[in-house]
Nucleic acid binder design. Structure first.
Lengths: 139, 139
DNA sequence: TGATAACTTAGAATTGTTTCTAAGTTTAGA
DNA sequence: TCTAAACTTAGAAACAATTCTAAGTTATCA
């Protein structure tokens, strides 16, 4: 369950982002903040409709676009599947389970030898590491 | 242009993989071997039809599936777009140009601190680094 | 040189994701 | 409390990638 403080935090986030507070938006951001499961639109849509809140797919898309535009959520895509959304804004890497497909955050670590030796003529702005294997539940 | 030796190499690869040698398959593998541009199906299809060889999209897909199945080519996907194909079987990472979208290979390097410290309860089987920035042409 | 299994064809169909539409509802602020 | 703008709705439409189909062609090998 969500604490009052966390609820207030979400409202402030909306306010700061200049978007209206609606139940659908609240729930989407709450879901992304409380579960680091990198939900897809489909995940969010069905979670939303399992609870009291009704929401159409279009609203989930609209909400996510608003949140991404406001910098509250990041979008990323893995293996050509549907986009996933992540409210963890700290830099981090990702782990993908080969068995169940779960996506988990991995604390940030630097790759020290990288920018110095491997850039060549390119300018490297960012990088991420994608790890694959079996998650703790699937091993 | 393709050397006779390289052509022979491709024929041997087909033979070893137990797939028939057809002009379409030859050209697809040749293209992937000679240009490290991580072509999509669309790229390969239009390249194929720009030359003498005609090919339907279905054949490009069939060919790629055969080549991937035979372990001669690797498939990967970036940012939810169409699958890309890579005949460079040596382990390596990828660089993506933010400007023009080009995908380039980056020589393999290890991430030494990784498997020891960050695995947690997971079993890590593989990892890859995706670098982003501007390529040498776009800077 | 046949015979036959494997391959290729063009384009239709399918699949999965995302956007659009037009009408109704809600939010925020005067 | 009222109003206007912003938001939401269900479902249709669009879109892109991939697979399927049924008929014709070709590579392989006996």
């Amino acid at each position: 369950m969500l604490s009052i403080a966390a609820g207030r935090q979400i409202e402030e986030a909306f306010e700061k982002a200049g978007v209206r507070r609606t139940p659908q938006r609240f729930f989407v951001l709450e879901h992304l903040l409380t579960r680091p499961d990198h939900a897809t639109v489909e995940d969010l849509w069905s979670a939303l409709n399992r609870r009291h809140t009704r929401a159409s797919r279009a609203t989930v898309y609209n909400t996510l676009h608003a949140l991404v535009g406001a910098g509250l959520v990041r979008e990323f895509t893995l293996d050509g599947k549907a986009a996933r959304y992540d409210a963890n804004l700290d830099p981090h890497h990702h782990f993908v389970c080969n068995q169940c497909g779960a996506v988990e955050d991995v604390d940030w670590f630097d790759v020290p030898e990288l920018p110095k030796n491997r850039a060549g003529q390119r300018r490297i702005r960012s990088f991420e590491v994608i790890l694959r294997g079996e998650c703790s539940r699937c091993r």
